[in-house]
Protein backbone atom coordinates (compact mmCIF):
# COMPACT_ATOMS: atom_id res chain seq x y z
CA UNK A 1 0.00 0.00 0.00
CA UNK A 2 1.27 3.42 -0.89
CA UNK A 3 1.87 6.13 1.67
CA UNK A 4 -0.74 8.37 0.12
CA UNK A 5 -3.39 5.70 0.46
CA UNK A 6 -2.54 5.12 4.10
CA UNK A 7 -2.84 8.86 4.69
CA UNK A 8 -6.17 8.84 2.90
CA UNK A 9 -7.46 6.09 5.18
CA UNK A 10 -6.27 7.79 8.36
CA UNK A 11 -7.79 11.13 7.44
CA UNK A 12 -11.04 9.51 6.41
CA UNK A 13 -11.15 7.73 9.74
CA UNK A 14 -10.70 11.02 11.55
CA UNK A 15 -13.45 12.59 9.47
CA UNK A 16 -15.88 9.81 10.30
CA UNK A 17 -14.87 10.11 13.94
CA UNK A 18 -15.49 13.88 13.99
CA UNK A 19 -18.80 13.60 12.24
CA UNK A 20 -20.00 10.89 14.59
CA UNK A 21 -18.79 13.02 17.50
CA UNK A 22 -21.04 15.84 16.31
CA UNK A 23 -24.02 13.52 15.86
CA UNK A 24 -23.34 11.85 19.19
CA UNK A 25 -23.26 15.16 21.04
CA UNK A 26 -26.71 15.93 19.64
CA UNK A 27 -27.85 12.50 20.82
CA UNK A 28 -26.16 13.05 24.19
CA UNK A 29 -28.05 16.33 24.69
CA UNK A 30 -31.41 14.86 23.74
CA UNK A 31 -30.88 11.74 25.85
CA UNK A 32 -29.79 13.81 28.86
CA UNK A 33 -32.86 16.04 28.63
CA UNK A 34 -35.21 13.09 28.19
CA UNK A 35 -33.66 10.95 30.93
CA UNK A 36 -33.70 13.80 33.44
CA UNK A 37 -36.97 15.35 32.36
CA UNK A 38 -39.29 12.45 31.71
CA UNK A 39 -39.49 11.08 35.28
CA UNK A 40 -40.40 14.53 36.62
CA UNK A 41 -42.97 15.24 33.94
CA UNK A 42 -46.62 14.63 34.65
CA UNK A 43 -49.94 15.90 33.37
CA UNK A 44 -50.44 18.31 36.28
CA UNK A 45 -47.31 20.17 35.25
CA UNK A 46 -48.73 20.86 31.84
CA UNK A 47 -52.25 21.92 32.79
CA UNK A 48 -51.83 23.80 36.07
CA UNK A 49 -50.35 27.10 37.06
CA UNK A 50 -48.11 27.15 40.16
CA UNK A 51 -50.00 26.92 43.45
CA UNK A 52 -48.77 28.40 46.71
CA UNK A 53 -45.46 26.87 47.69
CA UNK A 54 -44.79 25.50 44.22
CA UNK A 55 -41.20 26.61 44.36
CA UNK A 56 -40.76 24.68 47.60
CA UNK A 57 -41.81 21.48 45.89
CA UNK A 58 -45.59 21.62 46.42
CA UNK A 59 -48.40 21.30 43.89
CA UNK A 60 -48.87 23.08 40.64
CA UNK A 61 -47.46 23.17 37.16
CA UNK A 62 -45.79 25.33 34.58
CA UNK A 63 -48.81 26.15 32.42
CA UNK A 64 -48.05 29.84 33.07
CA UNK A 65 -44.62 29.43 31.46
CA UNK A 66 -45.88 27.34 28.54
CA UNK A 67 -48.69 29.75 27.67
CA UNK A 68 -46.46 32.73 28.40
CA UNK A 69 -43.77 31.48 26.04
CA UNK A 70 -46.33 30.87 23.30
CA UNK A 71 -47.72 34.38 23.80
CA UNK A 72 -44.27 35.94 23.76
CA UNK A 73 -42.92 34.06 20.75
CA UNK A 74 -46.25 34.22 18.88
CA UNK A 75 -46.61 37.96 19.40
CA UNK A 76 -42.98 38.60 18.53
CA UNK A 77 -43.23 36.47 15.39
CA UNK A 78 -46.32 38.38 14.23
CA UNK A 79 -44.66 41.71 14.94
CA UNK A 80 -41.46 40.68 13.17
CA UNK A 81 -43.46 39.35 10.22
CA UNK A 82 -45.12 42.73 9.70
CA UNK A 83 -41.71 44.23 9.04
CA UNK A 84 -39.71 41.38 7.58
CA UNK A 85 -42.07 40.39 4.78
CA UNK A 86 -42.10 43.91 3.25
CA UNK A 87 -38.30 44.06 3.49
CA UNK A 88 -37.87 40.69 1.78
CA UNK A 89 -40.40 41.53 -0.94
CA UNK A 90 -38.84 44.94 -1.46
CA UNK A 91 -35.42 43.42 -1.94
CA UNK A 92 -36.81 41.08 -4.61
CA UNK A 93 -39.21 43.24 -6.61
CA UNK A 94 -38.73 46.94 -5.92
CA UNK A 95 -35.05 47.30 -5.30
CA UNK A 96 -33.41 48.73 -8.40
CA UNK A 97 -30.23 49.86 -6.74
CA UNK A 98 -27.99 46.99 -5.84
CA UNK A 99 -26.00 48.92 -3.25
CA UNK A 100 -29.12 49.64 -1.22
CA UNK A 101 -30.09 45.97 -1.16
CA UNK A 102 -26.54 44.99 -0.18
CA UNK A 103 -26.57 47.54 2.54
CA UNK A 104 -29.93 46.39 3.94
CA UNK A 105 -28.67 42.80 3.94
CA UNK A 106 -25.46 43.85 5.65
CA UNK A 107 -27.32 45.66 8.40
CA UNK A 108 -29.57 42.63 8.88
CA UNK A 109 -26.53 40.38 9.18
CA UNK A 110 -25.00 42.66 11.75
CA UNK A 111 -28.27 42.78 13.69
CA UNK A 112 -28.33 39.00 13.62
CA UNK A 113 -24.94 38.94 15.27
CA UNK A 114 -25.97 41.12 18.21
CA UNK A 115 -26.11 38.89 21.30
CA UNK A 116 -29.54 38.49 22.80
CA UNK A 117 -28.33 39.73 26.17
CA UNK A 118 -27.48 43.07 24.54
CA UNK A 119 -31.00 43.23 23.12
CA UNK A 120 -32.26 42.47 26.61
CA UNK A 121 -30.22 45.24 28.22
CA UNK A 122 -31.17 47.66 25.44
CA UNK A 123 -34.84 46.72 25.75
CA UNK A 124 -34.73 47.30 29.46
CA UNK A 125 -33.29 50.81 29.11
CA UNK A 126 -35.84 51.52 26.38
CA UNK A 127 -38.65 50.44 28.68
CA UNK A 128 -37.27 52.55 31.52
CA UNK A 129 -37.21 55.52 29.18
CA UNK A 130 -40.81 54.87 28.14
CA UNK A 131 -41.92 54.21 31.70
CA UNK A 132 -42.91 50.62 31.01
CA UNK A 133 -42.43 47.86 33.54
CA UNK A 134 -41.47 44.29 32.73
CA UNK A 135 -44.42 43.12 30.68
CA UNK A 136 -45.65 40.94 27.86
CA UNK A 137 -45.44 43.94 25.54
CA UNK A 138 -41.81 44.61 26.44
CA UNK A 139 -40.91 40.97 25.95
CA UNK A 140 -42.67 40.85 22.59
CA UNK A 141 -40.88 43.96 21.34
CA UNK A 142 -37.43 42.73 22.36
CA UNK A 143 -38.03 39.25 20.97
CA UNK A 144 -39.29 40.81 17.74
CA UNK A 145 -35.99 42.73 17.48
CA UNK A 146 -34.18 39.41 17.92
CA UNK A 147 -36.37 37.58 15.39
CA UNK A 148 -36.49 40.28 12.72
CA UNK A 149 -33.05 39.64 11.18
CA UNK A 150 -33.41 35.84 11.39
CA UNK A 151 -36.79 35.90 9.69
CA UNK A 152 -35.92 38.49 7.07
CA UNK A 153 -32.65 36.84 6.06
CA UNK A 154 -34.39 33.48 5.93
CA UNK A 155 -37.10 34.84 3.64
CA UNK A 156 -34.62 36.78 1.57
CA UNK A 157 -32.48 33.71 0.93
CA UNK A 158 -35.46 31.72 -0.42
CA UNK A 159 -37.05 34.60 -2.30
CA UNK A 160 -33.78 35.33 -4.03
CA UNK A 161 -33.75 31.82 -5.40
CA UNK A 162 -36.91 32.43 -7.42
CA UNK A 163 -36.14 32.33 -11.15
CA UNK A 164 -36.15 35.79 -12.71
CA UNK A 165 -38.20 34.48 -15.68
CA UNK A 166 -41.25 34.08 -13.51
CA UNK A 167 -41.05 37.65 -12.33
CA UNK A 168 -40.47 38.89 -15.85
CA UNK A 169 -43.44 36.89 -17.13
CA UNK A 170 -45.64 38.72 -14.64
CA UNK A 171 -44.26 42.10 -15.72
CA UNK A 172 -44.77 41.17 -19.37
CA UNK A 173 -48.43 40.53 -18.63
CA UNK A 174 -48.69 44.08 -17.32
CA UNK A 175 -48.61 43.39 -13.59
CA UNK A 176 -47.19 46.08 -11.36
CA UNK A 177 -44.33 45.30 -8.99
CA UNK A 178 -46.74 45.15 -6.07
CA UNK A 179 -49.01 42.72 -7.89
CA UNK A 180 -46.03 40.62 -8.86
CA UNK A 181 -44.85 40.57 -5.26
CA UNK A 182 -48.21 39.59 -3.83
CA UNK A 183 -49.48 37.18 -6.46
CA UNK A 184 -46.34 35.64 -7.92
CA UNK A 185 -43.40 35.94 -5.52
CA UNK A 186 -45.41 35.36 -2.37
CA UNK A 187 -47.33 32.39 -3.78
CA UNK A 188 -44.31 30.73 -5.29
CA UNK A 189 -42.08 31.23 -2.27
CA UNK A 190 -44.65 30.51 0.43
CA UNK A 191 -43.03 27.25 1.60
CA UNK A 192 -39.71 28.99 2.19
CA UNK A 193 -41.39 31.93 3.85
CA UNK A 194 -43.25 29.63 6.25
CA UNK A 195 -39.97 27.88 7.07
CA UNK A 196 -38.34 31.24 7.85
CA UNK A 197 -41.27 32.26 10.07
CA UNK A 198 -41.17 29.02 12.04
CA UNK A 199 -37.38 29.20 12.34
CA UNK A 200 -37.73 32.65 13.88
CA UNK A 201 -40.50 31.40 16.15
CA UNK A 202 -38.26 28.60 17.36
CA UNK A 203 -35.44 31.03 18.11
CA UNK A 204 -37.81 33.36 19.89
CA UNK A 205 -39.36 30.73 22.12
CA UNK A 206 -35.98 29.39 23.19
CA UNK A 207 -34.31 32.67 24.02
CA UNK A 208 -33.92 33.48 27.69
CA UNK A 209 -31.42 36.31 27.87
CA UNK A 210 -33.57 38.84 26.05
CA UNK A 211 -36.72 38.29 28.10
CA UNK A 212 -34.88 38.09 31.42
CA UNK A 213 -35.41 41.76 32.24
CA UNK A 214 -38.10 42.73 29.79
CA UNK A 215 -40.87 40.19 30.33
CA UNK A 216 -40.48 39.55 34.05
CA UNK A 217 -41.85 36.40 35.64
CA UNK A 218 -45.19 35.64 37.21
CA UNK A 219 -47.29 32.69 38.33
CA UNK A 220 -50.35 33.90 36.46
CA UNK A 221 -51.24 33.75 32.83
CA UNK A 222 -51.30 37.39 31.71
CA UNK A 223 -54.60 38.88 30.62
CA UNK A 224 -53.17 42.12 29.30
CA UNK A 225 -50.16 43.23 27.29
CA UNK A 226 -48.94 45.31 30.20
CA UNK A 227 -48.74 42.44 32.68
CA UNK A 228 -45.54 40.52 33.31
CA UNK A 229 -45.38 37.08 31.79
CA UNK A 230 -43.53 33.85 32.54
CA UNK A 231 -41.57 31.97 29.91
CA UNK A 232 -40.27 28.44 29.63
CA UNK A 233 -36.54 29.19 29.38
CA UNK A 234 -36.75 31.31 32.50
CA UNK A 235 -38.86 28.65 34.22
CA UNK A 236 -35.97 26.25 33.59
CA UNK A 237 -33.38 28.76 34.74
CA UNK A 238 -35.12 29.90 37.92
CA UNK A 239 -36.18 26.44 39.05
CA UNK A 240 -32.64 25.13 38.56
CA UNK A 241 -31.43 27.93 40.79
CA UNK A 242 -33.43 26.73 43.78
CA UNK A 243 -31.77 24.43 46.32
CA UNK A 244 -34.61 21.85 46.34
CA UNK A 245 -34.05 18.71 44.26
CA UNK A 246 -37.79 18.38 43.57
CA UNK A 247 -37.95 21.82 42.06
CA UNK A 248 -34.79 21.15 40.09
CA UNK A 249 -36.41 18.04 38.66
CA UNK A 250 -39.25 20.22 37.46
CA UNK A 251 -36.67 22.40 35.73
CA UNK A 252 -35.56 19.32 33.81
CA UNK A 253 -39.17 18.61 32.93
CA UNK A 254 -39.60 22.20 31.74
CA UNK A 255 -36.45 21.83 29.64
CA UNK A 256 -37.95 18.69 28.12
CA UNK A 257 -41.19 20.54 27.31
CA UNK A 258 -39.19 23.32 25.68
CA UNK A 259 -37.14 20.83 23.65
CA UNK A 260 -40.29 19.04 22.52
CA UNK A 261 -41.81 22.35 21.39
CA UNK A 262 -38.65 23.13 19.42
CA UNK A 263 -38.70 19.66 17.85
CA UNK A 264 -42.37 19.99 16.91
CA UNK A 265 -41.80 23.43 15.38
CA UNK A 266 -38.80 22.19 13.44
CA UNK A 267 -40.51 19.04 12.15
CA UNK A 268 -43.73 20.97 11.54
CA UNK A 269 -41.93 23.50 9.38
CA UNK A 270 -40.46 20.71 7.27
CA UNK A 271 -43.85 19.04 6.88
CA UNK A 272 -45.63 22.31 6.10
CA UNK A 273 -43.10 23.45 3.55
CA UNK A 274 -43.20 20.06 1.81
CA UNK A 275 -47.00 20.22 1.76
CA UNK A 276 -47.13 23.76 0.48
CA UNK A 277 -44.45 22.97 -2.05
CA UNK A 278 -47.06 21.04 -3.99
CA UNK A 279 -48.75 24.25 -5.04
CA UNK A 280 -45.73 25.94 -6.47
CA UNK A 281 -44.44 25.84 -10.02
CA UNK A 282 -41.38 23.67 -10.24
Amino acid sequence: MKKSQIEEGIVKGFMLLSFSLVVCSLGFILVTVIVKGLPALNLDMLIQTPKGGYYLGKEGGILNAIVGSLYLAGGATLLALVFSLPIALFLKTYSRRKWWADYVRLSLDILWGIPSIVYGAFGFTLMLALGLRASLLGGIIVLALLELPIMTRGMDEVIRRMPIDMEEAAYALGATRFETAMHVVLRQMLPGIVTAILLAFGRGIGDAASVLFTAGYTDRIPNSLLRPVASLPLAVFFQLGTPFPEVQNRAYAAALVLTVIILVVSLGSRWLSARMGRYTIK
Binding site: L26, T32, V33, R203, G206, D207, L240
Partner: peptide, 24 residues
Amino acid sequence: VAKPLLDLLAGIPSVVYGVWGMVA
Protein backbone atom coordinates in the same frame (compact mmCIF):
# COMPACT_ATOMS: atom_id res chain seq x y z
CA VAL B 1 -29.80 13.45 6.84
CA ALA B 2 -27.01 15.53 8.36
CA LYS B 3 -28.52 18.89 7.44
CA PRO B 4 -31.72 18.56 9.51
CA LEU B 5 -29.67 17.19 12.41
CA LEU B 6 -27.37 20.21 12.32
CA ASP B 7 -30.36 22.53 12.06
CA LEU B 8 -31.77 20.84 15.12
CA LEU B 9 -28.49 21.31 16.96
CA ALA B 10 -28.58 25.00 16.03
CA GLY B 11 -32.19 25.28 17.18
CA ILE B 12 -31.81 23.83 20.67
CA PRO B 13 -32.39 26.67 23.15
CA SER B 14 -29.37 27.85 25.08
CA VAL B 15 -31.08 27.09 28.38
CA VAL B 16 -31.35 23.45 27.34
CA TYR B 17 -27.65 23.48 26.50
CA GLY B 18 -27.12 24.90 29.96
CA VAL B 19 -29.12 22.10 31.56
CA TRP B 20 -27.11 19.56 29.60
CA GLY B 21 -23.90 21.25 30.70
CA MET B 22 -24.88 21.24 34.36
CA VAL B 23 -26.17 17.69 34.36
CA ALA B 24 -23.71 15.96 32.07
